[in-house]
């Protein structure tokens, strides 16, 4: 039995396509970058919840500084690390809105440590999406607070040495200890089942905003194939082997 391709490729047979909440601009990310998938999941959740007109995003400094070019909602860009403070200002004055920050590991876990800690401690009614790829992507692959011990980066050319650079920062576990956070989870987007779980987590976080259940914090362990100097497929494998033992997936807190 053979079915003509044109019989299948019909509007009514579509089971997956780009959500209209994505702008369609070609993303500036490197091939295989996890940011693209995470953007897509946020856009899908916002679209499916029907809250595009109530959602305001705060983009960071780093690779995802231009996130506002890709998800078709109102956005502001924040200074390096300050997104949770900016989101606080928005959320406090726009109580009915869904406010989220989108931050990388350098932005959130290094220069913005104070802002994220205190926003979470106040239990700001915001969603924080934290993409951890253990490296500074935009500036060319320098060590991040989450860089693994021994991991080679442009500023740890002989590998991260704990005597010199300290330890990989498990900021998600730290934030889960704060009374202001309601939902804290660590996810990944390397396989379809992982992507489904990550999307459910994002959806849950946005739903929590409606219920004012404290700050929702989602870490996505991601890849940076350019920074890690691997192909995207190798990078996913390396992430599973090296990153997951240090940053185990799953819900850390859910109240």
């Amino acid at each position: 039995m053979s079915v003509e391709l044109k019989e299948i490729i019909k509007e009514e047979n579509i089971v997956y396509r780009k959500t209209p909440a994505l702008t369609g601009n070609v993303m500036h990310y490197c091939p295989g970058c996890s940011h693209g998938v995470v953007h897509k999941l946020i856009a899908e959740v916002v679209e499916e919840m029907g809250v595009r007109d109530k959602t305001i995003g705060v983009s960071p400094v780093g690779c995802s500084v231009l996130a506002y070019n890709y998800i078709d909602i109102d956005w502001t860009e924040a200074a390096h690390g300050r997104a949770p403070a900016v989101a606080t200002g928005i959320s406090r004055l726009h109580p009915g809105k869904f406010v989220f920050t989108y931050q990388g590991d350098g932005d959130l876990a290094s220069i913005g440590t104070a802002e994220v800690m205190h926003a979470c401690n106040r239990g700001e009614n915001i969603v924080i999406i934290f993409v951890n790829n253990a490296i500074y992507g935009m500036t060319g692959g320098q060590m991040a607070p989450t860089t693994l011990v021994g991991q080679v980066t442009s500023t740890t050319p002989r590998g991260r040495d704990v005597k010199l650079n300290g330890f990989p920062m498990k900021i998600t576990e730290l934030l889960a200890r704060l009374d202001g956070t309601g939902f804290v989870t660590r996810q990944a987007v390397h396989t379809p089942p992982a992507i489904r779980k990550a999307k459910n987590a994002i959806r849950k976080a946005f739903e929590n905003t409606k219920k004012d259940k404290g700050t929702s914090f989602i870490e996505i362990v991601g890849t940076c194939s350019s920074g890690w100097k691997m192909t995207p497929v190798e990078a996913n494998r390396w992430m599973v082997e090296k990153m997951f033992p240090e940053y185990p997936l799953g819900d850390i807190k859910d109240i």
Binding site: T76, R82, A85, V86, T88, G89, I90, R92, A114
Partner: peptide, 19 residues
């Protein structure tokens, strides 16, 4: 709102002003 630092305070102003 009492912020955790002057840096956070001015960035909260930034967020509010952006609205």
């Amino acid at each position: 709102l009492q912020a955790e630092s002057e840096i956070a305070a001015i960035n909260m102003v930034y967020g509010a002003a952006a609205c």
